[in-house]
């Protein structure tokens, strides 16, 4: 049990990173992590030896997130940045500044965001991602392709000023 607890504790920073990127909000992200830890704790005895702690914890987090979305759908809709008057029309020069990325991520569908982050940020394999989200690997792949394509467009990677961007790349 000791090693299991240590394994869980060791995953907390990664869970927080994912939750923050997924939800785009610090407070909500930490609420989700708190719930995830509570549930993980309660289920620790059911954890089979050899189970990958990362996959197991991300599954718990995902299920709680989905439950939360269901509950939320009965509440008034989320107030988007656009309705708060946040200017979206002028992407910053490098197109990849943190705020732009946050914003672009939030413009993906939740399903796309999950796979883009689990694979691209957390480095989970397609098979692990499929298990965490409880969907077929083929679905992971199609959501990934669509999500990244959307990000490319949003981040002005596609069809933008390629020469300008190329020089920025070199500067970086």
């Amino acid at each position: 049990m000791t090693t299991r607890r240590e394994a869980v504790a060791a995953e907390i920073p990664r869970l927080r990173r994912y939750a923050r990127a997924l939800l785009g909000d610090d407070g909500e992200a930490d609420d989700l992590i708190q719930d995830t830890l509570e549930r993980a704790l309660a289920r620790l005895p059911q954890w089979r030896d050899g189970d990958n702690p990362r996959k197991w914890l991300f599954s718990i987090l995902h299920n709680l997130h989905v439950d939360g979305l269901r509950r939320k759908s009965r509440r008034p809709p989320h107030v988007g940045l656009e309705s708060l008057g946040v200017d979206q029309s002028s992407p910053s020069a490098d197109g990849a500044s943190g705020r732009d990325l946050d914003h672009a991520l939030q413009l993906l569908s939740g399903e796309q965001r999950q796979v883009v982050l689990l694979v691209g940020l957390e480095g989970l394999s397609y098979a692990e991602t499929a298990e965490v989200l409880d969907i077929p690997v083929g679905t992971v792949m199609s959501r990934l392709a669509r999500g990244r394509e959307r990000l490319r467009t949003l981040m002005d990677y596609e069809g933008g000023d390629r020469n300008g961007r190329a020089s920025l790349r070199r500067v970086k």
């Binding site: 920073p13 923050r20 990849a96």
Partner: peptide, 14 residues
């Protein structure tokens, strides 16, 4: 580049 940007953006969390 997107993956690098994601890791950079949220590295602080780690």
């Amino acid at each position: 580049e997107i993956n690098d940007a994601l890791r950079q953006r949220y590295a602080g969390r780690l």
